[in-house]
Design a binder for these strands. Structure first.
Length: 775
DNA sequence: GTAGGGTTAG
């Protein structure tokens, strides 16, 4: 900027929009300093508004501090807005109080910012005081102020979860954390305890309890306060939610009261009400408002549509969702980022991931949320590899993952049992300070448990400051999967003692625990407690867990009666658990009866054919077994081959029975033979009763020795350092002989061997298995 | 002054 005349300078100051960059603003600042009175309040105020418009927080703050007391009203309003815009809500409110204390009345320019700060700090008391102030000062006709008020009341309706997350790491702002202790240190001394309220005593029309505010700062001291997040998607029947839920009908009324009193309403007003309704599950009311928009001569915009789409995601109504999609396209909003991520999410929740994918590909701009929507969409639909692929692509596209990305992607690691990837993600989570987020911590607990490390899962669980129903359920289920039934039960009891009401999923977890330990009576008492005391209708999962438990415990007839009396029609898979129990307990007669039930409900249930045929074989009824296998072949069904895999040096090695294709096959074979010799010396006798082929005894043994899990384990032994834990995953259940063999192996090579079959974990150590041979 | 994405379940 060249040497500028006083007149030009003043004009520039007046027309602050002309200053577009930081360097222009700084040059102007310098010129004023050189040529004008550097202490002129009016110049500084105008310059301040230029700085705040450019979102220059530090410069604005410094400039504000150069103002002589009392600061002019205009300067106060600029700095308050600046604090709010930069996420410094406590500072914003502090300045607001200070402004009032210095005798400056707030007006319609400052209330929207102040209300926004109250909203994001979740301070209803303060917000209500501000509302009182608005009414008394007659600002209650202002459109912007009223919109901000409605927004505040709408957000306070879904207070519970937000309050929780406020202290437990939730960040939707992309990292704008406020460290309150930093703020507190900056509050001028004269506004210390007590003095503030007396200095406020003279303020007309404003009634805030300043001591409350000071106390609040003290309570928050040292804590990192983060922005609240949406409460959407919570299931109405989620009992834990109801327990802590603090939905305030009064706030809902307040939204309406404000809306009805408004002399003029614009699209923002309508959108605010619509979002408020949708966020609180009042879907029909929200949609009614959308339909009424037309009567007010308004048209839905991207805000409206992206708020309405989640409704159809929750309703799983893809037809309605598509109508909105069509509307968006017709009105030129088809590629809006916000609508885009809502569409991706809506299609995914309606199990139409291909459509999500299409929307994603057509988006010209993709932000962290669009990426996360497609990642979560894949994972929720069981496309774990796809989800991981998108996650990697996101990193390549230089989009920094956010906290939500991790709670979306970790379940994929959990389902794929890829411990090394899970650990890498955990490292990233710690480095970025996301590890105090409840969602992420719960996902980590689940991931570690499912990847075989119940110890790490428990460690993370114990380190969590506060547990919600999901984290409890994750650790209970994890303990159950690892056969630690008593841990699972005591955790469940501890959870109840802490006042958390178990929901339907938590009962699935505790029943699973009972099932793995054969605790029949305990399970019945939980089942009855659930239906009678908690009023939770048993779902298929509960029935399946009970049926499994009874069957395993040998109470076959009881299981049969139980399944037959189910409220929900039993599925093939529920009957299958009993069929498997019939195999274990060698009840051929009941097995046939159960198999008939399965074939009636689910004629293509391959598992049932296989089990029944094995039951026949074990009973030496080779012809019946053959008959079933032929009918399977005629139906075009193929038995799933048993497969085991192991991660070595971040690489997955998969084996099928008798597999000779692995590059180290000869080494594996040699080691296997050596091992077998030592096992036999220790007393291992192969048990061929589970070899369901009508072949010679020697050949049966040979078939056993090359079961996939043994190949994987031996490969693990020869390719990892002495003492390393071996973790093997198998797609089917471990056979009895392998179970015995692995016990011997664990003792001989002195290693912990963790095997996850399709049902649970087995930890083999010192010749014993954690399942106590009950599985 | 208004908007989109997340964790547990055979």
């Amino acid at each position: 900027m060249e040497m500028t005349s006083t007149k030009t300078l003043v004009n520039l100051l007046k027309n602050s929009k002309a200053i577009r960059t930081e360097s222009q603003a700084k040059q102007l600042h310098a010129q004023i300093f050189k040529t004008q009175d550097p202490n002129s309040s009016s110049h500084i105020s105008k310059l301040l508004s230029i700085y705040t418009n450019l979102h220059l927080l530090r410069d604005s703050h410094n400039l504000f501090n150069t103002l002589k007391s009392p600061a002019p009203p205009f300067a106060w309003k600029s700095i308050i807005r600046c604090f709010t815009d930069n996420g410094l809500f406590v500072q914003s409110l502090t300045s607001f109080v200070q402004m009032m204390a210095s005798g400056v009345y707030p007006d319609h320019n400052v209330f929207p910012s102040v209300l926004k700060s109250c909203t994001l700090l979740m301070d209803l008391r303060f917000g209500e005081s501000v509302h009182g102030c608005i009414v008394r000062l007659g600002v209650d006709l202002d459109l912007y102020t009223n919109n901000a008020l409605m927004n505040m009341y709408a957000k306070f309706q879904s207070l519970d979860r937000n309050m929780y997350d406020r202290f437990h790491g939730c960040d939707v702002s992309g990292g704008s954390k406020i460290y309150v202790h930093e703020v507190l240190d900056k509050i001028p001394k004269q506004y210390g305890n007590g003095e503030l309220s007396s200095s406020l005593a003279g303020c007309n029309g404003f009634n805030v309890n300043a001591n409350d505010l000071i106390q609040k700062f003290k309570n928050l001291k040292g804590k990192s306060v983060q922005l609240p997040h949406s409460n959407r998607g919570r299931q109405a029947d989620d009992h834990s939610y109801r327990r802590t839920s603090n939905v305030r009908p009064l706030e809902s009324d307040s939204v309406w009261k404000v809306f009805e009193m408004m002399p003029i309403r614009d699209l923002v007003s309508w959108n605010t009400v619509i979002v408020g309704l949708a966020r609180n599950g009042l879907y029909e009311e929200a949609l009614k408002m959308v339909r009424e928009l037309g009567n007010a001569n308004l048209k839905p915009d991207s805000f409206t549509l992206s708020s309405v789409l989640p409704i159809f995601a929750d309703y799983v109504n893809v037809i309605k969702g598509k109508e909105i999609h069509g509307y968006a396209i017709r009105h030129g909003l088809g590629t809006d980022v916000y609508i885009g991520s809502s569409l991706i999410d809506m299609y995914a929740k309606c199990t139409r991931v291909e459509d999500s994918h299409r929307v994603f590909c057509l988006l010209p701009i993709r932000d962290a949320i669009s990426w996360n929507s497609i990642i979560a969409g894949c994972v929720q639909n069981g496309l774990f590899d796809e989800g991981l692929k998108f996650f990697r692509q996101m990193l390549i596209a230089k989009i920094k993952p956010r906290h939500v990305s991790f709670s979306s992607i970790l379940p994929a690691c959990a389902h794929l049992t890829t411990l090394h990837l899970g650990k890498q993600l955990h490292g990233y989570i710690i480095r970025n300070g996301f590890d105090d987020n409840v969602f992420i911590a719960s996902s980590l607990v689940d991931m570690y448990a499912k990847c075989g490390s119940i110890r790490l899962a428990r460690h993370i669980f114990d380190k969590m400051e506060l547990h919600d129903i999901v984290s409890w359920t994750a650790i209970i289920m994890g303990s159950a999967l690892h056969g630690h039934a008593h841990d699972a039960i005591s955790l469940f009891e501890q959870m109840e003692k802490e006042g958390l009401k178990p929901n339907s999923v938590a009962f699935v977890a505790v029943l699973t625990a009972c099932s793995h330990a054969g605790l029949v009576d305990k399970a019945w008492s939980y089942f009855n407690n659930m239906t009678q005391d908690h009023g939770i209708a048993p779902s298929l999962e509960h029935y399946a867990a009970m049926a499994d438990l009874l069957g395993r415990a040998g109470k076959l007839e009881e299981a049969y009666e139980f399944i037959s009396s189910m409220d929900v029609g039993p599925t093939g898979s529920v009957w299958s658990t009993l069929l498997f129990a019939c195999k274990v307990h060698k009840n051929v007669q009941l097995a046939e009866k159960v198999a008939d039930k399965i074939f009636m409900i689910d004629p293509d249930n391959m598992g049932a054919y296989v089990i029944l045929s094995n039951i026949y074989s074990a009973d030496r009824r080779w012809k019946d077994a053959a008959r079933l296998r032929i009918s399977m072949r005629n139906k075009g069904m193929k038995k799933t081959p048993a497969c085991s895999w192991i991660e070595v040096k971040s690489k997955v090695h998969a084996f099928v029975a008798g597999d000779e294709s692995h590059p180290y096959y000869h080494k594996i074979n040699g080691a296997l033979k050596d091992l077998l010799e030592r096992m036999e010396q220790e007393g291992y006798v192969p048990d061929t009763k589970e070899v369901f082929h009508d072949v010679e005894e020697e050949q049966k043994k040979h078939l056993l020795y090359y079961h996939s899990e043994r190949l994987a384990i031996v490969f693990g032994i020869i390719s990892t350092p002495v003492g390393t834990t071996i973790r093997v995953i198998k797609n089917l259940r471990v056979c009895e002989d392998c179970h015995t063999a692995i016990k011997f192996i664990s003792k001989i090579v002195d290693r912990e061997i963790v095997v996850r079959d399709n049902n649970r974990f087995h930890h083999f150590k010192d010749g014993k298995c954690s399942c106590g041979d009950y599985w």
